[in-house]
Simulated assay, not measured.
Amino acid sequence: MSDLPRTMNDTTDEQWREKLTPEEYAVLRQGGTERPFVGEYTDTETAGTYRCRACGATLFTSKEKFHSHCGWPSFHAPEDAENVTLLEDRSMGMVRTEVRCANCDSHLGHVFRGEGYPTPTDERFCINSISMTLEPADEN
């Protein structure tokens, strides 16, 4: 999606509300979390590219996805580290690392480290399904 602007931080709150459903807005723009085990991509094994639902930027691919059984889609790394921004999150009485889209600054989920999953990075990017769209890979 090379026609995307480098940043969408100048999009107004009113424009986001028009573009997103109330549920998408609550997660992407207000930092909410969808309920576990209800997301569209929690268990999908479709090959393809996961994009930010707000701006279309590439976030993850099915190559990085793994089954963590935590209730949300899990990835061991982003497709490109520059596509996400990691921020310290001290909400809810704990210290976590929030994952945001580097292009539009939308909330995606959190990343957890050192949980012992057999992945190349020992990281689990726990991402809300509602914050992404899946573009299936060409099967040609």
Rank of each mutant, 00 (worst) to 15 (best):
M1D: 15
D3L: 15
D3M: 14
D3K: 15
D3W: 14
P5K: 15
M8C: 13
N9V: 14
N9W: 04
D10V: 12
T12K: 10
D13R: 14
W16I: 10
E18W: 07
K19G: 12
L20W: 05
E24K: 11
E24W: 10
Y25R: 10
V27P: 12
R29Y: 08
R29C: 08
Q30D: 03
G31L: 05
T33K: 05
R35M: 13
R35A: 15
P36I: 06
F37E: 07
V38S: 14
V38M: 11
G39I: 01
E40S: 11
Y41D: 00
E45V: 15
T46M: 06
Y50C: 00
Y50A: 00
Y50V: 00
R51V: 14
C52N: 10
C52I: 07
R53V: 15
A54E: 10
G56Q: 02
A57K: 12
T58C: 06
L59E: 05
L59S: 04
F60E: 01
S62V: 02
S62D: 02
S62T: 05
E64M: 04
E64K: 02
E64H: 04
K65M: 01
F66A: 11
F66P: 14
H67M: 09
H69C: 02
C70Y: 00
W72R: 01
W72Y: 04
S74I: 01
S74T: 03
S74G: 02
A77F: 00
D80P: 03
D80R: 14
A81Q: 12
A81K: 12
E82G: 07
N83L: 04
E88P: 10
E88G: 08
R90V: 07
S91L: 06
M94R: 09
V95S: 11
R96Q: 03
E98Q: 14
E98S: 13
C101A: 05
C101E: 05
N103M: 08
C104A: 08
C104S: 08
C104K: 10
S106H: 02
H107A: 07
H107F: 05
H107S: 04
V111E: 03
V111F: 03
R113D: 11
E115K: 04
G116H: 03
P118E: 06
T119R: 10
P120K: 08
T121Y: 06
D122N: 15
E123N: 09
E123M: 07
F125N: 00
F125L: 00
I127P: 00
I127R: 01
I127Y: 00
S129E: 01
T133A: 13
P136G: 08
D138V: 08
D138L: 11
N140Q: 10
N140I: 08
